[in-house]
């Protein structure tokens, strides 16, 4: 399996009459990991929702292509969005197709991968915030997506679990080479995971800066080359309408 090619062209999105996104253009090649950062309320989630087909653009367009086949898209929303009437394992199996036993088995495996094997039979309301978010991640990964859209998926877990989950995504990426668009507040997370970082900002939001992180995986979190990239990224975040930064 491979990743989907994503192309966003002069995208403009208006919500309730308010322009949120303006003239957004970028592309992701199959298997590329793209991180999007930007301050709260700029429109990162809106951009991701547009990629997922949940928001229709005012102008411009989004194209997600997987050769000639339909691209499977999986989303981890900013909130877990589990169905409260289904047990945890059923929530994971919910998005899968195929015979029941196979679905259940894969759901169980996906839960084990996010360290929730003991929680399969409990209700979502019995999960902590981080556990619920991990369930949502399992639900996304179990569909073998071509495009994985992640909206701050690790925001509500502790630092150690976060690193563990990041590595889990990287490992799956190595196996399946899906394309990833990751929205995050965490600069280090963006640098650790992404091939490219887009900085979103302004009202309405545009792509204000773009940073290449051309480093092979597996990466080390303490790699000085990664740490050196923090500064241009922080700079791009702090200065509106910064020009394209580049590193690597």
């Amino acid at each position: 399996m491979s990743g989907a090619a994503v192309s966003v062209q002069t995208l403009a999105v208006t919500l309730s009459g308010r322009p949120i996104l303006h003239e957004i253009s970028f592309a992701a090649t199959p298997g590329e990991v793209l991180a999007i950062i930007g301050s709260s309320g700029t429109g990162k989630s809106t951009l991701l929702r547009t990629l997922a087909g949940l928001v229709s653009p005012e102008r411009g367009g989004v194209d997600v292509r997987n050769g000639d086949e339909r691209a499977r898209i999986a989303v981890v929303f900013q909130e877990p969005r589990l169905l409260p009437w289904l047990r945890v394992a059923e929530n994971v199996a919910f998005v899968m197709q195929g015979p029941r036993p196979a679905r259940r088995q894969r759901a169980q495996a996906a839960l084990a991968a996010v360290r929730l094997e003991g929680c399969a039979r409990i209700w979502p309301r019995q999960l902590s915030g981080g556990m619920a978010q991990r369930t949502a991640l399992a639900r996304a990964l179990v569909t073998s997506p071509h495009l994985l859209l992640l909206d701050e998926p690790f925001a509500s877990v502790d630092a150690l679990t976060r690193m563990e989950l990041q590595d889990h995504v990287v490992e799956l990426w190595h196996q399946h080479r899906f394309t990833v668009v990751l929205v995050t507040h965490d600069i280090d997370e963006a640098l650790y995971l992404a091939d490219r970082v887009l900085v979103l900002g302004g009202h309405p939001a545009r792509v204000q800066a773009e940073l290449d992180v051309s480093m092979p995986r597996p990466r080390s979190r303490t790699d000085p080359r990664l740490l050196a990239l923090r500064e241009p990224l922080l700079h791009a975040l702090a200065t509106p309408r910064a020009v394209s930064a580049s590193g690597g």
Partner: peptide
């Protein structure tokens, strides 16, 4: 009503001592 059963705790040892990410 509210949660009656306690959510089971992580069944695994500390993530640092674990052998890294697990694959499904």
């Amino acid at each position: 009503s509210l949660g009656t059963a306690e959510p089971p705790d992580r069944t695994h040892p500390s993530p640092l001592s674990a052998e890294g990410g697990v694959t499904p």
